[in-house]
Design a protein around this nucleic acid. Structure first.
Lengths: 238, 238
DNA sequence: ACCTGAACACCGTTCAAGT
DNA sequence: ACCTGAACACCGTTCAAGT
C-alpha cells in the first residue's frame, strides 16, 4: 500500500532493466507464474505496458534475465562458484552446493517451471554448472564419467525434481475403495507410508528427505564407479 | 490434403470425445505444443471451435484425456501393466518397462511438458505407477524403500528426464573463447566429450545412453540398499 | 532518451441460439 | 442431441507517436 505522497510526487525511481527484473521476481513470487503477464508487471511498476519493451525486447528476455538473477542469488547463498579445495571431500561439497541451490529454488517455486524450457545457458547459470563439474573433477572423476553424472543428476543438480503426485487431497486425490483391486501395490504403499510419516511437510512425503535420498543415491553410485576404475571407468562400447 | 469429394460429401465421421483426443495427439505430434490451440484443433477436425466444448469441458480436460491415451499406448507397448513373475529379476523387468515407456514418450515429445503440471493421476497412469511399485515389490523391497525409490526415479520412471543444455549450436551455443577462463571445467569437459563421442544423436550426447546410465545408477543403488537390510533398510530418524 | 495510445492478431471460454 | 455465431475478457507485440 503506497502512500499518496509517494504516488503523487511523480515517478521517483526510473524504470531500468534491473528494476523490471526485480519486480518480475516479486510478482512471480507473490502470484505464481500463471498470473505473470506483461500487463500485470507494468501495473505493479506503475507504468504502461509498452514501457517495458524499451528496456527488454520481450517476455522471453525477461525470463532469461530473471533466471540469471536467481543464479546470482544462488552464487551468493553458496558463497561463490569457485571450486572448493577438496578438503571435506567432493561429495560433501557438491551436496552442500546443490542443497544451497535448492534453498533458493524453494523460495521461488516457479523457477523450475521456466528453467526447463530454457536450454540456452546464461553466464551465471553456466558458472554454476561449471562449479559442479569442477567439484566432481576435484574428486578425481574423469570428464567422461562427469558427463554421464551431469545427465544422471538432471534437474536435481539445480535443486529440484519433479513432483509425481498431487499434494492436495481435494476431489478424488484419495484412492477410491473399489480401486484397491486394480491398484494393489499403490494402495499397499500408501497405507504403509502414510502411517510411518505423520510429520511430513506435505500430504505424505517429506520432500526434503526424498530429495536428499535421491541425491545421495546418485552421488554414492558415482563414487563407487569412480573408485572402481579411476580415470577410465568401463563404458560399454556401442 | 483432403479430396474435394471427401469434403463435400458432408461430415462422415461424427465428433466424439475419442476422435477429439486422437486428433489432439496428431496435432501436437505434428506441430508441437505451442501450436496446440482449441481453434487449430477445431480446424483440423473441420468443425467450429465451440463444438469441442460439447464433448469435453475445456482444454485441461483434453490434456487429461490425451495423457491417459498415451499411457494406454504404453500399456500396449509393454504388454500390459501386470507385474511380471520375477523370473528375470526385478531390475531387468523394471528397466524394460521404463524403456518401453520411453519409446512411447519419444514419439510424443510434447507429453513430458504437459505431464509435469498434471499431478492428478488418471486411472491408466495410476496403473502404470502401480506396476512399477509392484515390480519393485516383487524384488523384495520394503514399501518404505519403494516410496523413496519412486522419488529418486522421478520423471525417469515415465521414460524421460530434463534436457540440461541446448542441442542446437546456433547463436552462442558454442562457448566463446574468452570464457575458457571463467568456465574452465565446462570447457574442459566439452573438449573431451565432443571428441569421444562423434556418433552421438544430438550435439554431443547420446540421449539414450545417458538415460540408461542414470537409470542403472539408481536401480543399482536401490538393489544395494535392499540387499543391505532386506525389509527394513536403515532410515535416518528425525 | 524514455515513455505511451491505439491497434493487431491472437487466446480460452460463456451464453444464447440454431437444427 | 449435437453444433454454431457473436461476444467477452484477456494475451504478447508492432508501430507511430508523444515528451
Amino acid at each position: 500500500m503506497t502512500s499518496t505522497a509517494e504516488r503523487s510526487s511523480g515517478r521517483r525511481t526510473p524504470l531500468t532493466r534491473e528494476r523490471v527484473l526485480r519486480t518480475a521476481i516479486e510478482l512471480a513470487d507473490a502470484s505464481g507464474i500463471d498470473a505473470f503477464t506483461m500487463r500485470r508487471l507494468a501495473e505493479r511498476l506503475d507504468v504502461e505496458v509498452m514501457s517495458l519493451y524499451y528496456h527488454l525486447p520481450n517476455k522471453e528476455a525477461i525470463f532469461d534475465g530473471v533466471v540469471e538473477s536467481v543464479f546470482a542469488e544462488i552464487d551468493q547463498r553458496v558463497g561463490g562458484f569457485e571450486v572448493p579445495e577438496t578438503d571435506a571431500g567432493w561429495k560433501t561439497s557438491l551436496r552442500e552446493r546443490i542443497l544451497g541451490a535448492r534453498e533458493v529454488m524453494l523460495e521461488h517455486p516457479w523457477v523450475p517451471g521456466i528453467l526447463e524450457g530454457r536450454t540456452q545457458l546464461g553466464l551465471l547459470r553456466a558458472r554454476y554448472v561449471d562449479s559442479v563439474i569442477g567439484t566432481l573433477r576435484s574428486g578425481g572423476l574423469s570428464y567422461d564419467l562427469i558427463h554421464h553424472a551431469m545427465h544422471a543428476l538432471g534437474s536435481r543438480m539445480f535443486g529440484f525434481s519433479q513432483e509425481l503426485v498431487s499434494d492436495d487431497d481435494d476431489g478424488d486425490g484419495d484412492i477410491p475403495e473399489q480401486l484397491a483391486e486394480t491398484l494393489p501395490h499403490l494402495v499397499g504403499m500408501l497405507a504403509v507410508v502414510r502411517h510411518d510419516d505423520p510429520s511430513s511437510t506435505l500430504g505424505w512425503c517429506d520432500d526434503q528427505f526424498e530429495f536428499e535420498f535421491g541425491l545421495d543415491l546418485i552421488l554414492d553410485g558415482l563414487e563407487r564407479l569412480a573408485r572402481s576404475d579411476g580415470e577410465s571407468f568401463p563404458r560399454t562400447a556401442s
